[in-house]
Design a protein around this nucleic acid. Structure first.
Lengths: 354, 354
DNA sequence: TGCTGAATTTATAACGTTTTAAATGGCCAG
DNA sequence: CTGGCCATTTAAAACGTTATAAATTCAGCA
């Protein structure tokens, strides 16, 4: 079958398959086809006959061919890489790892790889984004800790570079996002505290910079207003504060008059720190006060079953973000299809009857 | 200065810099040099005159040139990528994120990028390693959860593929690793319990598969033997068990005769779960029993100051692993220079006098 | 037979870099 | 002025892939 008149590279053609990783040329030599044909066949181009496609695929599988990503990337300009901006703040309770697991799951079976761009290389996150886009280091970007007027979102939107955020913005140009409905979570959680008979819930919210802090606050306020009860938004700390700081602040607050009788905590660490602070003051969870918290691992409910929790599945979130980004890269232009608001799973024990 | 007699590519030479990312050719056109010369100059080859090198670097900086990684990779075969095998078990308390932050810090300023290879794509970790090496997806690999006869280490050693493990093996061929001295940690921690007057410490160890579990156990046993006191290694659970399981097991153990009076916990979650279990039995930390634990975040000591903790800095570990791997890739062949055993920082309050 | 067009395959060039080998030019000894 | 040597620069090829345009085959039909 093979044409022996071809002089080119005939040196080692006796060995059918050269030493080393098989390439398109290896397959071409085996099948007697041209490299171009093999390339086409493997990408299932309609111009190649069915029979040829089948045979090429067969040989490729047999010799364990897999395309050279560097060459593809050089030729096509596509990197087949999804970048994740990793924030140092995300170290606690596996936020980053869960999200990445999810993204990886979504990327499984595609040609895409996940690469981590820790943002502390560049002093600001915007610089990191700039660097990545200018140097064509990825085909798409995923990041979190979204701000209402997030400059990264602005930049990427302007450039038309595909991305998905974890969290929404308040920018006028819509963009792909996946977000947890923190309003509903906060609203339901606060209502739950009130349903338990508490009359002055306190909110420990996210850092003011981030969009989700506003949502938490909004849900909280809606619930307390509906009930017409007192409330407090704990100042000086937020969900990013170290546990020790939260604990101290809670203790300090109880030394002052008219303290809250319950807490809405946006995170597990926050809840644990709050409990410790209250315990320092001799107060017992479930008796003198209550807590409802959001949980992203299963730690809190195992350690402190007294805390009512609502679970946010970050791995699922990552998976959604991966899927959405792939759709975006794939050319989906209807942005509304690329915006996901995940509903909190309210436990059935949460009666909504006030 | 520029020679106008050169006809090649003169078509758009009026625009000095073509649209798009600058390449070596862009610099060549600007300086009037050949592409080869520019390439050489940028890599500081001694055969290029100092003056030329300076000028080329200057122009490169000015137009913001950065080499195309895909092209470099295709040509040289080097990927400039470090892969990290991420384990789903590592979700808790930011293990993965901390390590990655550290690695990224070590890679900062080098040509290397960090790419995450979640192992759940391939059913086993060995398959993932196989895939990565066979397809030349990285120049080096980092992974953790090392087993005494780790098959990944075997495979990579055989292939001569650069890697660093977090944790040691018991294989005869030495390999680069970074490890925490869990023996010393466990030994000192257990001695501390005994110094506090406890007479039956219990160990909650790592999963038996992993090398570090043996180290923990060895340190523990050495301390109890020296003191000649009773001891117990809690069966049925380990550091990977969910908090709820640890809590249940502890509670159950206290329903049986002759329970331990103190705990050596290898992790924060474990310590918290143990405290909850004991509390269920009406026992108070610091009064009826004591705990010493290893801490990798600062959560535990903030939440439960009664627990004496020894801190393990995972970010520093990651940084070390990154550095070691770079040395290995750089050709360092003296393996002993690539093996780091990090010493636990024993708090000064830990008197060693029994 | 010879022409047309469809179906299938192919040669060639290109992506941006590095490597190998060769060219250029200056300088000095003979 | 020839030849040789050094320092410096250069042309050409290659890495493995895909895009463009061209070639080949073959059937149908005048």
């Amino acid at each position: 079958m093979a044409d022996p008149s071809k002089p080119a590279h005939a040196e080692d053609s006796g060995l059918a398959v050269k030493r080393g990783k098989p390439t398109l040329r290896t397959i071409a030599e085996i099948t007697g086809l041209a490299v171009t044909t093999v390339s086409r066949a493997l990408s299932d181009a309609p111009q190649i006959s069915i029979e040829t496609r089948r045979r090429v695929r067969e040989v490729a599988d047999e010799i364990g061919y897999s395309p050279d990503r560097a060459a593809q990337r050089l030729k096509t300009g596509r990197t087949n890489v999804i970048g994740v901006l990793l924030d140092p703040h995300e170290e606690i309770l596996g936020y980053g790892t869960s999200i990445m697991s999810g993204i990886a799951k979504a990327l499984q079976g595609t040609a895409y790889h996940l690469i981590v761009m820790p943002n502390f290389l560049n002093s600001t996150n915007v610089e990191a984004v700039n660097y990545i886009t200018r140097n064509g280091m990825a085909d798409g970007l995923i990041f979190s800790r979204t701000e209402p007027l997030d400059p990264r979102v602005r930049l990427l939107s302007d450039l038309g570079f595909p991305f998905v955020t974890h969290g929404r913005t308040e920018l006028s140009t819509p963009h792909p996002y996946v977000d947890y409905d923190n309003f509903t979570f906060s609203y339901q959680a606060t209502k739950r505290l009130i349903a338990k008979g508490r009359r002055k819930p306190a909110l420990i919210s996210g850092p003011a910079d981030f969009t989700f802090a506003g949502h938490l606050q909004h849900g909280f306020m809606t619930a307390v207003r509906e009930a017409g009860c007192a409330y407090e938004i704990l100042s000086g700390i937020d969900l990013d504060s170290p546990a020790g700081a939260i604990r101290d602040r809670v203790r300090q607050r109880y030394a002052e008059p008219d303290p809250p009788d319950s807490f809405m905590c946006g995170g597990e660490v926050c809840a644990l720190a709050t409990i410790t602070g209250m315990s320092d003051c001799g107060l017992t969870l479930g008796r003198e006060y209550d807590i409802v918290a959001k949980q992203t691992s299963h730690l809190l409910s195992a350690i402190q079953p007294q805390v009512e929790t609502i679970y946010e599945d970050l791995t699922a979130t990552g998976e959604d973000m991966g899927r959405v980004l792939l759709q975006k890269i794939g050319g989906e232009s209807d942005v509304s299809k690329l915006q996901l608001l995940l509903c909190p799973q309210i436990p059935s024990s949460f009666g909504t009857a006030g």
